[in-house]
Amino acid sequence: MSAFNQFLMQLINGLNIGSIYALIALGYTMVYGIAKLINFAHGDIIMVGAYISLVLLGTGLPWWLVCLLTIIACAVLGVVMEKVAYKPLRKASRISLLITAIGISYLLENLFQLIFTANPKPYPGFITLPPIVLGSITISSNYYITFIVSVTLMIILNLFVQKTNMGKAMRAVSEDEGAARLMGINVDTTISLTFAIGSALAAIAGILYSNCYSPINPTMGSLPGIKAFIAAVLGGIGSIPGAVLGAFILGMVEAMTKAYISSQFLDSIVFTILILMLILKPAGILGRNVKEKV
C-alpha cells in the first residue's frame, strides 16, 4: 500500500472513531450545559446499549426494532438516573454531584458484570452493507455507516436545538435557569429531555461501536466515555459544535498517533492534550469564557 493510501486509511479511521466520540461527547456537553453536571456515568450508557441490543438480537427481532428498543431503553435509563440520583442533589455542591456520578458509573458496570459476567461477549456485526471500493482502498460498511449515521444525527440535533421551541428552551435553561422559569419553561421537563436525548445518542454510539469493535464487556464504556469527555472539554464544554469539533480532532489525533507514532503511547498523548488544553485555554476551542458574577 502506498504511503498516500495508508494516510487515507488513517483519515477514514479517524473519522470513524471521531464520529463515535462525537455522539458520546454531545451527551456530555448537553447535560453539562443544562445541569452543570459532568455525568461520568454517561460512558456506561454505551455499554448498557451494547448489552441490551445484544440480548434483543438474540430474540430474533429485526435489526431496526432492536435499535429502536435499545435507544428507548437507554433514554429511559438516562431520565431515571437523573430523577433518582441527580435531581435530589440539584442544590448540592458540584463535588457531591461528581461523586454521585462516579458512583452511578460503578453501579452500572458492576450490575452488568453481575448479570453478564466479566467475560467478553462476542457481538455480531449485524449492520452490514457492501464495502465501498475507492481505487486501491476498500472501506468496510462499518466505517461509512458510523460516519453517515453520526453526521445525520448531529444535523438533526442541531436543527432541533436551533429551530424548535423545546430547543430554544434548552438553550435558555442552560444560560439562565431562573429567567427561563420566568418565561414559563418547565425546567424539570427540559432537564429530563436533555438526559433522554444524550442517552439515546449514547445508545446509538454503543451499537455502532460494538458493531465495529466486538467483543463487548461491562467496562467497555469507560474509556470511550472519558475520551469523549476530553473531546467535549477540548471543544469547549457546554458547546454543541465544540463537542463535535473536539471529537473529530481527537479521532484524527488517535488514528495518526496509532499509525505514525506509537499505539502504546496513544492514551498518554490524548491525556497530554487534555492537560495542555486545560492549562492554555481552559474554556476550550469554541467555549465561552464565563464571567463569574462578583
Partner: peptide, 12 residues
C-alpha cells in the same frame, strides 16, 4: 416578570 438586571438570553 421583567427581572432585575434584565436577564435577557445573551446568546440568543
Amino acid at each position: 416578570q421583567v427581572p432585575e438586571r434584565r436577564r435577557v438570553f445573551a446568546e440568543q
